[in-house]
Amino acid sequence: MKDWWQINFPKGRQNLIITDANGYPVRIAYGEKGTGKPLVLLHGLASWSYNWRHIIEPLSQYFRVICFDAKGHGFSERPVSRREENGHQVIELERIIQALCDKPPVIIAESLGALVSLALAGQSPHLIDRLVVINAPIFTEKLPHWVMGLLAQTPLEIIQTIDFLRLAYVFAPILRELIAIERRRVLFDPSILSEEDVYWITYPFIEIPGTLVKVAEELQIAVKEVENLQAKKPNMLTKIQNNLCAIECPTLILWGDQDSWFPASHGEKLHQNIPNSRFQLLHNCYHDASTGASEVVKAEIIKFLQDTNFC
């Protein structure tokens, strides 16, 4: 299989060293395509830059597209022997923007990436010029899938043992099939997910040690957040929700009309809480909009940026 980074980016996969939220240097994998104003693509949990495969090329006709893997995801470095704290993604996103962008960029973000972007836009409005969020878990009160719950309840020591024994690699065909089944369930048209898609979507879990551990750790953080939210204890979700009114940049909210993980009513509520925002339903779209509704997503993004005089 040809290297995806080499095919899609003129310089292939590049590496950036940032200081993470714990104060350690960490290597971030990213790719760039196009010239002009910076536009950053941010994926969701258990995903990586490959999720943006359908819109990198068309957006690069207008912008300098920067696509990066969040810490511990895809081809970016995984922390070793240290626990993450909630909110680390926001700090690391800020440092990546400061390192790669010569001016405030457009941020286009999906799912957990959208939540992280909303957090940064609320606390540091000057860092983002335009914001597009897709199916954000901003008002969720539970993990949306039983597999997430299972990983969140499994002690990390067990998952680390699975990782150490390379069981994902040993049982790669089975794992690929299971992940493919679940990924097709978040697509309105499951047939669009090709065998090549399945190969690349599952690649980090099978070939790169530490991926499953990182995802499980993030899910355990999320569970604790939801518990604190329900118990009315201090939590990041409430903080992000309270800061929505501070978001100054023009914001586009895209939402799958059939997203079973986070309902469209959450998108409408988000729109009501961000002053300079517009809300657009994506028809016949489930949770994975960047794959399942890529043509409409691309068109809505370009229209929004043209309407707000960014391109």
Rank of each mutant, 00 (worst) to 15 (best):
Ser277Gln: 12
Ile179His: 04
Ile181Ser: 12
Phe188Gln: 02
Thr238Ser: 10
Asn235Leu: 10
Ile201Ala: 00
Pro204Asn: 05
Cys249Gln: 02
Ser277Tyr: 07
Leu193His: 02
Ala180Cys: 12
Ala222Asn: 04
Leu237His: 00
Arg183Cys: 11
Trp200Glu: 03
Asn228Asp: 09
Ile179Asp: 01
Leu175Val: 10
Pro155Leu: 06
Asn242Ala: 15
Glu248Ser: 13
Glu225Leu: 09
Asn243Arg: 12
Ala246Trp: 14
Ile247Val: 08
Met236Val: 05
Asp257Ser: 15
Leu156Pro: 00
Cys245Glu: 15
Ser191Tyr: 04
Glu295His: 13
Val215Glu: 04
Phe205Trp: 05
Lys269Phe: 00
Leu175His: 07
Ala222Tyr: 00
Thr211Gly: 02
Asp163Val: 03
Arg278Cys: 15
Pro204Ala: 09
Pro155Ile: 11
Ile240Thr: 06
Ala172Met: 12
Trp200Asn: 06
His266Tyr: 10
Thr251Phe: 02
Asp257Val: 12
Asn242Ser: 14
Arg184Glu: 04
Glu207Thr: 13
Gln241Arg: 12
Gly256Lys: 01
Leu165Lys: 08
Arg166Asn: 11
Leu219Cys: 08
Ile192Glu: 06
Tyr169Leu: 08
Ala222His: 05
His283Val: 12
Leu219Trp: 01
Pro155Tyr: 14
Gln272Glu: 09
Ile179Ser: 02
Glu157Ile: 14
Gly267Thr: 01
Val186Ser: 03
Asp257Pro: 14
Glu225Trp: 12
Trp255Arg: 01
Gly210Ala: 02
Glu268Tyr: 11
Asn284Asp: 07
Ile221Phe: 11
Tyr203Glu: 02
Gln220Arg: 09
Ser294His: 10
Val223Asp: 01
